[in-house]
Design a binder for these strands. Structure first.
Length: 155
DNA sequence: GCCAACGTTGGC
DNA sequence: GCCAACGTTGGC
């Protein structure tokens, strides 16, 4: 079992949206490193910190869970989609996605500022300056610590 | 294969 | 809205 952080702009898709939907396809990832994490490493049952970026405040909003193995991102095949990529086809898909399902909201958002200032979270990738990767691996210790800050018991 | 130009991300 | 960081593209 691995732990992940996944970013989403709440004005585009928030944790509250995921709670309403129950489960959603994480379409539109167009970065090779993030794609490789989804395609090669993410397993059903892995836990995810749902991170709100470009938000007030930006930070970890709650928890989601990986719901299935990676499969081709069909938004890349759809010419009308903003995520369309002509290099990807159903025969030879370039981009992949997973489904995530809602688990829990934190009592309040754990702000990036809080994460950066917490010695227990030293070295966490999201706190690194200029870190733009939208899917990041996370140590179990860091994951559990943030859940504790958020008032949610996991496992 | 180098690297400058360009586009995007995302905190602030 | 600004701009630093950094990924991608494309000319050579």
């Amino acid at each position: 079992m691995q732990f992940w952080l996944m970013k989403s702009e709440p004005t585009v898709y928030s944790l509250a949206d995921l709670e309403r939907d129950g489960r959603t396809a994480w379409e539109g990832v167009r970065n090779y490193q993030a794609r490789n994490f989804m395609r090669d490493s993410m397993q059903p049952g892995d836990l995810v910190l749902f991170y709100h970026s470009n938000a007030e405040p930006s930070g970890a909003a709650g928890i989601a869970r990986v719901a299935c193995r990676a499969y081709p991102d069909h938004a890349a095949f759809d010419e009308k989609s903003g995520y369309y990529d002509q290099r990807s086809s159903p025969e030879k898909p370039l981009w992949f996605m997973i489904d995530v399902e809602f688990v829990a909201h934190f009592a309040s958002v754990i702000a990036l500022e809080t994460i950066k200032g917490d010695p227990a979270l030293e070295g966490i990738m999201v706190a690194r300056r200029g870190m733009r990767l939208s899917i990041q691996p996370l140590s179990e210790e860091h994951f559990r610590h943030i859940c504790k800050l958020g008032g949610v018991a996991v496992g």
